[in-house]
């Protein structure tokens, strides 16, 4: 009941610039002995593009996955548009529909055509009729440049094309925020740009985005803010310009030194 009430009130106070769209407060998570998320506090405003970078094992993917509860957290709270993440069941499914997710390994539904991949959510979750859902899907596929592949199966597409379909699939739910969990890490080098271009366009259109990536070029071009994570903690938060030219912490300096050396 409480969450329903809060959902309504936040919807009625529509342009609530004060409520952050995504809020994490004192979030902790352990994998056994390993403390992967340590007291994470993060606010993401409407329309903001936040890039999360850091060495592997720093907890950045876990952070991203925790935001739509693909990973549970031990304590703390996570709110999407003012509503605390429900534990399980229908309420959680409903909230996830508002949070788009793009995975490292694309995860397109392997037995369904490209078009069906994009229409499944609108039809089965939002109860859209198949006609309008197809129109919506085709316009989104066109936007990411794979509308001519609509009848194929995922395995018949290149990695870059599959990832662009995955972006279209997430957008079809008209999400409030999009999460990208290392969207280009599984791609061949020549396909990275086509995916990044689609993401830059999306960022320019005002989508709220949280992007875990190693693509510094994307961070410079599209991010409003860069978050540097190491050992389960947010070590540094700055604008891309500031972060790349003048990192404060030794940890960030070391990391940037290693990846920018070549």
């Amino acid at each position: 009941m409480t969450s329903d009430f809060e959902a309504n009130s936040s919807a009625s106070a529509a342009p609530s610039a004060q409520t952050p769209l995504v809020l994490l407060k004192n979030v902790n998570k352990h994998f056994g002995e390993l403390h992967v998320l340590q007291d994470i506090n993060l606010e993401v405003a409407r329309g903001e593009v936040v890039v999360v970078i850091g060495p592997s094992g720093s907890g950045k993917s876990t952070l991203c996955r925790a935001i739509n509860r693909l990973e549970t957290i031990d304590d703390g709270e996570i709110r999407i548009d003012g509503v605390e993440l429900p534990a399980e069941g229908k309420a959680l499914a409903k909230l996830r529909a508002d949070v788009g997710m793009v995975f490292q390994s694309f995860n397109l539904f392997a037995h369904k055509s490209i078009l069906e991949n994009v229409t499944l959510g609108p039809i089965k979750v939002k109860g859209m009729k198949s006609g309008p859902a197809k129109e919506l899907a085709m316009s989104l596929l066109k936007r990411v440049g794979v509308d001519n592949q609509a009848q194929k199966l995922p395995a018949q597409l290149s990695g870059g094309q599959q990832q662009r379909v995955a972006i279209a699939r997430a957008l079809a739910m008209q999400p409030k925020v999009m999460l990208f969990d290392e969207p280009t890490s599984a791609l061949d080098p020549e396909m990275i740009n086509e995916v990044l271009d689609a993401m830059v366009t999306l960022a320019k259109e005002g989508m709220t985005m949280i992007v875990v990536t190693h693509e510094m070029g994307f961070a410079r071009k599209a991010a409003d803010r860069v978050i540097f994570m190491a050992d389960g903690q947010i070590v540094e938060e700055a604008t891309p310009e500031e972060f790349f030219t003048n990192p404060q912490s030794p940890r960030a300096k070391d990391f940037l030194g290693k990846i920018l050396a070549h």
Binding site: K90, R96, M101, F103, G121, K124, V125, A170
Partner: peptide, 10 residues
């Protein structure tokens, strides 16, 4: 399964 959950399927 994660992708299915992520688009809001229970």
């Amino acid at each position: 399964a994660e992708a299915a959950r992520a688009i809001g399927l229970s």
